[in-house]
């Protein structure tokens, strides 16, 4: 029962935030500041996670392709996997873990210290000033980080294939676009935009309604990561089926 009530509260919260996103005025400067903050904070974790995943992908891919003698297609496999799945999902996991949880912690601390109440008392809409910029920042930053992550993943594949396993560099770069289409890149960007909306709303919701002192803030941060990761992994299945589908 409580979960259903929470889901309803979340829906109302999302609708209120959505209404404020669509109607003026917007906190442009605040949004830019949060976008910059989240992008710079997530940059290193995203590259540091996607790069080794590209390396692993190349390591295992080489084993499969050696059966066919088709090692030259390795970079195509790496780039399809990175653009469609690996980079969108991993970048979003790290945005949730680093950016989303930071937003939940900030808003939660504001709620506990009654700063949000103070904002409301001064007749300032706290959703407009504190929540909307953070949601927009997540939505803007996630696709950008996804692109950077894709480049890191392909670089990781290059590192394993060429520097460690002695494949030819020219063949690797030449075949990157053999199976990948621009629709894969845009599909990945679209997916990360949706994931960004989910992360932004869930993080700000958890922070905005945090209760119970310092422990409550910790719980809000914890729940943010877990719930948003679950939400977008489930969304990912349906988005992949819809966007990339099975080519019959």
């Amino acid at each position: 029962m409580e979960r259903i009530a929470a889901l309803g509260r979340f829906t109302i919260f999302s609708a209120r935030v959505g209404w404020r996103v669509l109607t003026p005025w917007w906190e442009v400067q605040e949004t830019a500041r949060h976008t910059w903050l989240i992008a710079t904070r997530c940059l290193l974790p995203v590259t540091a996670v996607v790069f080794p995943f590209g390396m692993v992908m190349a390591l295992q891919g080489l084993e499969i392709f050696e059966i066919f003698g088709a090692q030259r297609l390795l970079s195509s496999l790496v780039s399809v996997a990175v653009f469609r799945e690996l980079s969108p999902v991993l970048a979003s996991v790290l945005v949730a873990a680093q950016g989303g949880s930071a937003f939940a912690a900030e808003l939660g601390a504001m709620r506990i210290k009654e700063e949000l109440d103070a904002t409301e008392i001064m007749a300032i809409d706290s959703l407009r000033t504190h929540v909307v910029p953070r949601v927009l920042a997540t939505v803007i930053a996630t696709p950008i980080l996804n692109l950077i992550g894709s480049i890191a993943g392909i670089g990781g594949g290059f590192f394993t294939a060429v520097c460690l396993k002695g494949e030819t560099a020219g063949v690797y770069w030449g075949n990157i676009w053999a199976l990948t289409h621009s629709s894969d890149v845009f599909g990945g960007l679209f997916k990360t935009t949706v994931f960004g909306v989910l992360i932004g709303l869930i993080a700000t919701y958890q922070g905005y309604y945090a209760t119970g002192g310092a422990a409550g803030v910790g719980k809000a941060v914890n729940d943010t990561v877990v719930i948003s990761v679950t939400a977008f992994v489930i969304a990912n299945y349906f988005l992949t089926s819809a966007l990339f589908g099975a080519i019959q």
Partner: peptide, 27 residues
């Protein structure tokens, strides 16, 4: 409360990144 939030935040990011790096080595 800020400190608790930051500690929680840092713990998940640092452990995910180090596990990903270690994963490559172990594979």
């Amino acid at each position: 409360p800020n400190g608790v939030g930051e500690a929680t935040n840092a713990s998940v990011v640092v452990s995910a990144v180090s596990c990903a790096l270690l994963n490559y080595l172990m594979s």
